[in-house]
Simulated assay, not measured.
Amino acid sequence: MKWARVRNSDETESTGLVMDGMFHPRSSLGSDTASGDPIALADVTLLSPVVPGKFIGLWNNFKAAAEKGGQDHPTHPLYFFKADTSLAGPGAEVAIPVSAGRVVFEGELGIVLGNTCKNVSVAEAEAAIFGYTCINDFTSLDVLNADPSFPQWTRAKSFDGFGVVGPVIETEVAWQDLTITVLVNDRERQSYPANDMILPPAQIVSLLSQDMTLNPGDLIACGTSLGARPVKAGMVVDVAIDGIGSVSVTMTAPVET
């Protein structure tokens, strides 16, 4: 089942199911209760399918990238947070701030939580995963490495629009079978299998729940692999995962003030 969040023609926002070219409003994410009549997808605007309380990203979670970089495999997620204002959805324009310098795309698989998790087992974590989505975790390399005494993960990841999510949350997909692909101006630039993960989704959730309480709607980006590249204004960047869909944004120059 594919869940989406949309903006309606009257500027209100709704959450619901996408089926047969129609959007079926529901009272909340995962609810069976209808909250309106079905609407043609052409008559709504897709937004990020979830507004997370916590937007967590992982580093060094794919074997191929770790081996190329000479890094050990982590036994606990190496994670950072992205600001809530970094969230962007399908079709957004993402400005590259002057202060960001070099910016790279990172196509990733995203986990959306459906239940509260605190100190849960791997089996309990598996049951708590609501579904999966596509993420583009933009990163400012210049900001990240600007101060040798303190890698600035949060700042580098949190510029407005640097957390692209969508187009839907798919609840019926086997993550092991997925391939994450990034197209830049319709040219494939990144493609890697999800099953190359070092820490798989349920283990990620279980281990993070030892550090903090995870809540319904929290979003975890599973990390990226080889192939991340710089982007420039004018480029269209599309993260696609068969079985989920694709989320595309256009990079723009900073707005003059």
Score class of each variant (00 low, 15 high):
Glu13Arg: 11
Thr250Arg: 14
Val18Gly: 08
Thr213Lys: 07
Val18Ile: 10
Ala125Val: 04
Leu144Arg: 12
Ile241Glu: 03
Asp160Gln: 03
Leu58Cys: 11
Gly245Cys: 07
Ala95Cys: 11
Gly243Ile: 08
Ser99Lys: 14
Asp196Cys: 03
Pro216Met: 04
Glu67Gly: 00
Val98Ile: 05
Pro49Asn: 08
Val231Met: 03
Ala83Gln: 10
Lys63Cys: 09
Leu141Glu: 15
Asp84Tyr: 03
Val231Phe: 07
Ala128Ile: 02
Thr213His: 13
Ser158Gln: 07
Thr179Ser: 13
Trp153Thr: 02
Leu141Ala: 14
Cys117Met: 12
Leu219Asp: 10
Ser191His: 10
Val165Gln: 02
Asp10Arg: 00
Gly110Lys: 09
Tyr192Asn: 04
Gln190Tyr: 05
Lys54Val: 13
Leu144Ile: 11
Asn115Lys: 11
Asn119Met: 09
Ala40Trp: 11
Asp84Asn: 15
Glu13Trp: 00
Leu113Lys: 00
Ile220Pro: 10
Gly101Met: 12
Phe80Trp: 15
Val143Ile: 14
Glu256Thr: 13
Val104Arg: 02
Ala233Asn: 14
Ile198Ala: 12
Glu106Trp: 04
Ala127Gly: 08
Gly57Tyr: 01
Pro201Tyr: 06
Gln210Cys: 15
Ala66Glu: 02
Gly110Leu: 00
Leu208Gly: 09
Phe23Gly: 09
